[in-house]
């Protein structure tokens, strides 16, 4: 029944307001996410710059303590992952590279094998796989270790002993992960290329080892070596900075450590992928 022409029907009002409210909620949510993202990025950049500053200003300070810590991290994130890296490199070599060489030979394009290998393995697969492996096996552990140390008050104890927590806890991890990911990538690439050829050889691909490695050598340029070193060290630095930031940047309660670990893994993956995109642009420009 219509009582007043000026008064809107309640159902019409609800129909009109509800989508508006939902839109507002959606915009609020997007806005909050953007602000959160900016704050996180800001914190990470600030933390990275502080770490860089400490690394340079205290480059040789307390070498008797810091150098063994770097070696420990290299052992932990490099040597101890060799077995796992070998397994992954062989598996990927057999599954992807071997099949690709076989396929290229079947269409008579074995002359492109070197270029494809360099593009796929040296530029992309090697650095990314090594970085993800280190992130999962070591990076996540960093957040737990540092988050627990922070929650237990060990960081304040370091400060009480005039030991800079960034110098003692973060710098060796950044240096260790950068060196480890670089070394693991080189190892991964060699094992992948060799195991890939072995698989192709088993498939009777008409490609001699000499031709295969000659193609690789021709396809590789000095920029590949330089960018590989830069890229892998950058991945190591990104993973170490993100995981240390999540563990140390703010006081954590013990129950918050698992959430911080998940955040660190996600942010590290995003960071590495964004960095990878930057390097792809560099490769395309060159």
């Amino acid at each position: 029944m219509e009582t007043n022409g000026a008064t809107a029907n309640p159902s019409e009002v609800t129909r009109g307001v509800a989508p508006l409210a939902r839109l507002q909620q959606l915009l609020d949510s997007i806005g909050r996410s953007i602000i959160q993202f900016i704050r996180t990025a800001e914190g990470l950049v600030a933390f990275a710059l502080i770490t860089l500053g400490v690394a340079f200003s205290k480059f040789n300070a307390s070498a008797r303590v810091i150098h063994p810590l770097v070696r420990t991290q290299v052992y932990r994130a490099g040597l101890r992952l060799l077995a796992m890296t070998s397994f992954l490199a062989c598996a990927l070599g057999l599954v992807i590279i071997g099949q690709m060489v076989g396929l290229l030979s079947r269409v008579g394009a074995q002359g492109l094998a070197g270029t494809v290998m360099v593009t796929v393995v040296v530029r992309e697969l090697g650095p990314l796989v090594a970085a993800l492996l280190v992130l999962v096996r070591v990076g996540a552990g960093y957040v737990i270790e540092l988050g627990t140390a922070r929650a237990m008050g060990e960081v304040e104890a370091l400060e009480a002993l005039c030991i800079d927590p960034i110098h003692y806890l973060v710098v060796p991890r950044v240096a260790g992960l950068a060196l480890s990911i670089f070394s693991l990538t080189v190892y991964f690439i060699i094992v992948t290329l060799v195991s890939g050829y072995l698989f192709a050889f088993v498939q009777d691909v008409p490609l001699t080892p000499g031709d295969y490695f000659k193609q690789l050598a021709v396809a590789l340029t000095w920029e590949d070596f330089a960018l590989l070193a830069l890229k892998t060290c950058s991945f190591g630095a990104v993973i170490a900075v993100v995981t240390c930031y999540q563990g140390l940047a703010r006081p954590l309660r013990l129950e918050e450590v698992s959430g911080a670990t998940t955040r660190a893994v996600v942010q590290s993956v995003v960071g590495c992928v964004l960095l990878d995109i930057c390097f792809i642009v560099v490769y395309l420009v060159m």
């Binding site: 307390s62 303590v65 060990e154 009480a160 005039c162 030991i163 003692y168």
Partner: peptide, 29 residues
């Protein structure tokens, strides 16, 4: 110097001897 409450917050990743040696090795080289 400060000794904290409830166990004093020693560094759990180091042994007792390494805990004590840490400030000496870090500062005095």
């Amino acid at each position: 110097g400060i000794v904290f409450e409830n166990g004093g917050r020693p560094f759990n990743h180091l042994t007792v001897v390494e805990n004590i040696a840490l400030p000496l090795r870090y500062h005095r080289n």
